[in-house]
């Protein structure tokens, strides 16, 4: 009887131990997927991962604080019609600026590098930053009210830049495949993108993947970051 008890306890302990062991091994495996051999590389990698964890923590905290602020604002404007109107105005402005998540009907575009490389010019078979710029331009021209590329909301300070073999939007790296979401008049957006000779046509002709489809109730996330206003002043 005593021996059985001992066996069960030891079994449970080993069970916990192996779970922890497996989790640890998996974590270390995923952390060292980027190959680095020297000690200084490892140190740098540790630093980067720590910074990333810190960043994640900070952004979580920011989200929480924003929720708190929203609550306080609601409480403050509850019994007051003038401030209620102001609150509405504020929300609308934030929506246009890209400070809050928005939903609406629109289109979704998927752009991806060609999978079969058979062109003589391989440069044509990848999506470049200017392709994205042209698509965004087309969308804006067709009256898109909110645009997002791979989770990056396009606001009035957003830039789509080429950084060697990656593309940066809002300073964040993104890569193929690109999922572009846009809210606006579905028929206008769809028509602008699928007309003959449109940018989507060009991208397709080079052998890349380019698909456009109408999607109802798209959710576009808010812009993560701050829009600085150190130099602009109201002109008299």
């Amino acid at each position: 009887m005593v021996k059985r008890k001992i066996a069960i306890t030891l079994g449970i302990m080993c069970f916990l131990l192996t779970i922890a062991l497996c989790v640890q091994i998996k974590t270390m495996d995923s952390a060292s997927s980027t190959v680095s051999r020297t000690l200084s590389d490892n140190g740098l990698r540790d630093e980067v991962l720590k910074m990333k964890a810190k960043y994640d923590d900070a952004s979580k905290e920011l989200e929480q604080k924003e929720k708190e602020l929203e609550k306080i604002r609601q409480a403050a404007t509850q019994n007051d019609t003038t401030s209620e109107a102001k609150e509405k105005e504020l929300k609308q402005n934030n929506m246009i600026l890209g400070n809050i998540d928005v939903t609406g009907d629109g289109v979704e575009i998927v752009l991806a590098d060609a999978t079969v490389k058979n062109n003589l010019n391989p440069s044509l078979q990848i999506i470049h930053y200017d392709d994205l710029q042209l698509v965004v331009n087309e969308l804006k021209n067709a009256g898109a009210e909110a645009i997002e590329i791979n989770g990056q909301r396009l606001v009035n300070t957003s830039a789509i830049t080429c950084e060697g073999n990656i593309i940066k939007i809002n300073g964040e790296r993104i890569g193929s495949p690109f999922y572009i979401k846009a809210i606006g008049s579905q028929s206008l957006l769809y028509g602008a993108l699928t007309r003959a000779g449109s940018i989507i046509d060009w991208i397709k002709n080079d052998g890349n993947t380019a698909e456009v489809k109408k999607v109802d109730n798209i959710t576009i996330s808010k812009y993560v970051g701050t829009i600085s206003h150190d130099y602009i002043k109201e002109s008299k």
Binding site: G11, F15, L17, T18, I19, V23, A31
Partner: peptide, 19 residues
Amino acid sequence: LGCLIGALIGINMPIISYT
């Protein structure tokens, strides 16, 4: 037995933060 079951569950667990 404990090690085996633990390994099976541990493999399917999510990874934790590097910190």
